[in-house]
Design a protein around this nucleic acid. Structure first.
Lengths: 146, 146
DNA sequence: GCTTATTTGCAAATAATTCGCATTTAGTAT
DNA sequence: ATACTAAATGCGAATTATTTGCAAATAAGC
């Protein structure tokens, strides 16, 4: 198995038990990967990082979904066909994605919290706005030199 | 064939010729559908609306891509596995999607234009921000009554 | 009308995601 | 610690989404 961090593992175990989820190797593997990698990862990338001894890809799909349902992961939309995830425990932020190389940077937008109310006000058929997805696209300094 | 609008068709034909795209039935079918339906549509939905006499699904994929590359369509991310498109000629706006029934409402965010600069300032490795995707999630009035 | 580069339909190939089911296992009660 | 039960896992097969190859059709320009 990969070099998992015991401290993280303990924390994740309690967190999982606090929800209605069992602390299984499949879930701990996912959470451990994210604890060491602060960027959105697709299922395929998770599979690669977990290695051949890691959970089956079907298990990764199922756990990404259950962890998201319980609020431990958030689904991130990077404009790719396959969706990515990251740890929900991180503070609210958005992403800036390089259209050439795919590099992802975190960005914090000060106005972000107020956007939901603004959206609700603008849509008369809606009763509530619970969240948003805000992703930026552009070019990183490396790729713009072309 | 569906009741296409001659006026629209003329406009789209010129628009296509203005780009480097031929005004083919496949492309006109897509543009005509969007001219009558102001909401994001997936390829599957386009196929259904085009009907059995409409373009093959492979053609829809190829044309959605070429029209997007030429700036006549924009790809919209509604949090679904399959991506959707809408006419680029419409003024800049965002979407609010009901998490229960999938209904989509357009919303305009006043601060929206300034967000790109804010993102660029926050990401030191990036040289330019060319656009963003901002989608809201919530519950429509019909679905919240449960 | 003739020519040519594009586009199209169709079928087959990939890729992404989900499902069924027998087996294993985490959490709990004994 | 042992037994029990619902939940989780692996594996393969089934779906679903998207892309590709290629021969036939056709839009645009001459």
């Amino acid at each position: 198995m990969k070099e998992t961090c015991l401290v993280h593992t303990k924390v994740f175990q309690s967190a999982l038990r606090g929800k209605k989820l069992k602390a299984t190797p499949g879930r701990l593997a996912i959470l451990d990967i994210f604890a060491h990698c602060n960027k959105p990862l697709s299922i395929k990338e998770l599979k690669k990082m977990a290695g051949s001894a890691g959970p089956d890809i079907a298990t990764l799909y199922r756990n990404a979904e259950s962890l998201t349902a319980e609020g431990m992961l958030v689904k991130v939309n990077l404009g790719e066909k396959n969706s990515a995830y990251e740890l929900a425990s991180r503070k609210h932020h958005h992403h800036l994605i390089c259209k050439t190389c795919g590099q992802v940077a975190d960005v914090t937008i000060s106005a972000s919290p107020g956007l939901n109310q603004q959206a609700l006000k603008a849509a008369k058929d809606f009763a509530a706005v619970s969240g948003h997805s805000l992703e930026f696209f552009g070019f990183c300094k490396k790729c713009v030199k072309k």
